[in-house]
Amino acid sequence: MSDTAVQPRRAPARPTGTVSGPPGRAPGPLTHTAVMTARALRLSSRNIDALITSLALPIMLMLIFVYFFGGAIDTGSEYDTYVMYVVPGVLLLSAGFGAATTATAVSEDMKGGIIDRFRSLDVGGTPVLAGHVAASTVRNLCATALVFGVALLIGFRPAATWSGWLLAAVVLIAYIVALSWLSAAIGLLARTPEAASGFTFFMSFLPYPSSAFVRTESMPDWLHGFADHQPITPAIESLRGLLLGQEMGGTPWIALAWAAGMLTVAIAASGTLFRIRTR
């Protein structure tokens, strides 16, 4: 996904691009997406407060769970320490938090006149959203790297195979992209940036009723059923299994199917919402 940040350079020898004339050929969605990604990255790198929050919050949460609650949580005999159990959950939790900021960014864009400007330059809605999603993915991967680094410091000891590492990365990135795009759709749905950040609450909350922090068997029956079948649980289970080298069957594929489904719905919904908002 982060590959989209690489700008397709035009051959410098080409004699188009005269300063006042129109471009020889209309640029395509790929060029637009690349420019929009660079823009979204620049915007988030200047929003220092949000950046610090999105990097620090997941680490804070992990420390809170490991040191405040961890001692009281029984995760069974498979796990020597709580930190071994909780890290995949924290990774997904931070993906949810990180993705949620996409909604605010998209909503800010819709509020001002910049979307009209882009449209008058013949830039469609999808490249604009794709730029925000790509930037969100980059931000999230930074946060993930930090969380992972701190996790190693406080005693997380992964035992993954090479293919396990790879598949874990694919699952995590797929969730980050899907949740970010879902969040972009929410940003289009909300009429103000404040409402957008409120709407994304459920997304940040979704990892709690799952196997992220406690075993789902410890929950009441009705919640247990939900927790086992909601989209975040397979992702957490796959990350945990892959990183700790456990046997886990088809769970990663279920997780990827969820991510693909969410992404499809998010892209379709955001396309429709964008057309409605810009009518």
Binding site: R10, R14, G17, P22, T31, R39, F118
Partner: peptide
């Protein structure tokens, strides 16, 4: 520069 890139101009243009 961003707007110019969106119209398909090269980086230098």
């Amino acid at each position: 520069r961003m707007m110019a890139r969106l119209t398909g101009q090269s980086r230098s243009a």
